[in-house]
């Protein structure tokens, strides 16, 4: 229950942090919210020799909208999205702001959300992470810095598998960039678990626009049941142009099931069932909201 010994570094600025990472490379671990890393350290599943604590780097906790792009500092805590006082000033479209709050609200529990960060979550690339699902749906970019410079990657390209990413040992995610969606977008988010009180085994996130009671555009992503989140393009194509009332139909269930099966992430029929239920629920929410 006691972590292995480590050297603790508390850089006060980004430059210092990058320098430490460049010096220690694979011997260092980045401590953001610590809600995933520290449990692993307590079990000695992670035994870094150096810990670089980002919690005193104020620059990493900024939130802003710049040229219609929402820029989220890597150290912004999950709970910030649940809190009007923290994100109200951004004047995001209300549906979008509400979605961020709803998704954040399903992460762990309050003490976990108050510490856990969006950057940490995206770096861990867990298939069960809400922000990964969001990033896949909205084509988020992440800004990665190291002592040598800065680069920007599309999150869908950055994630290579369950927990695997393009991050190098001296890289640090500093920012997440999401193009602010148009106000007319409507959202649905549903998540399901095989046992109560457990992280999702399947979740789905949907964004649609409606025109004359028909679906004009739509995006559908599922996650948790696949090693990385994925878009259900076949279902998106099928749904586009159809009457919104299709959301309760048997046809939708069948097409959704086929689209989920195509992803083939989970061979368990029950998980597949959950993914279909989550997808159809999320679509229904988006239509009805």
């Amino acid at each position: 229950m006691y972590p292995a010994s480590f050297r603790y570094h508390r850089p006060s600025g980004l430059h210092h942090a990058l320098e430490l990472l460049s010096r220690h490379k694979a011997d260092a671990a980045i401590l953001a919210g610590g809600q995933s890393l520290v449990p692993r350290m307590n079990l000695r599943q992670a035994t870094p020799e150096n810990i670089v604590d980002l919690n005193r780097i104020a620059d990493l906790s900024k939130l802003a909208v710049v040229n219609d792009v929402l820029e989220i500092g890597a150290m912004v805590r999950h709970q910030s999205f649940c809190c009007e006082a923290a994100i109200g000033f951004l004047s995001l479209p209300s549906g979008f702001a509400e979605l961020l709050g709803r998704m954040a609200d399903t992460i762990g529990n309050l003490p976990i959300r108050l510490r856990g960060t969006i950057g940490g979550s995206l770096a861990n690339a867990s298939p069960k992470a809400q922000w990964a699902l969001l990033s896949f749906l909205l084509d988020a970019d992440i800004v990665i810095e190291n002592a040598g410079g800065t680069r920007c990657e599309r999150y869908t390209q950055f994630v290579k598998g369950d927990g695997r990413t393009t991050l190098k040992p001296d890289d640090l995610i500093t920012n997440v960039r999401i193009k602010v969606p148009p106000a007319e977008w409507r959202y649905g988010f549903a998540q399901l678990a095989p046992q109560p009180n457990r992280p999702a085994s399947a979740f789905a996130l949907v964004a649609i626009t409606l025109e004359d009671a028909r679906v004009r555009d739509c995006r559908i992503a599922i996650g948790a049941c696949t090693p990385v989140p994925c878009r259900l393009h076949a279902l998106e194509d099928w749904l586009s142009g159809r009457r919104a009332s299709v959301s309760g139909s048997d046809d939708l269930v069948e097409i959704a099931a086929a689209a989920v099966r195509q992803q083939g992430g989970e061979s368990q029929p029950y998980i597949e069932h959950l993914a279909v239920v989550a997808t159809t629920r999320a679509i229904a929410q988006a239509v009805e909201c």
């Binding site: 095989p194 309760g248 048997d250 269930v253 029950y270 279909v276 159809t280």
Partner: peptide, 24 residues
């Protein structure tokens, strides 16, 4: 009786219980 266990139990019955989505 987890949801998964219930799913498996319902899957063994053949009267369409497992496709509740279709009941709508």
């Amino acid at each position: 009786i987890t949801p998964k266990a219930l799913f498996d139990l319902l899957s063994k019955t053949d009267d369409g219980l497992i496709s509740p989505l279709r009941r709508r």
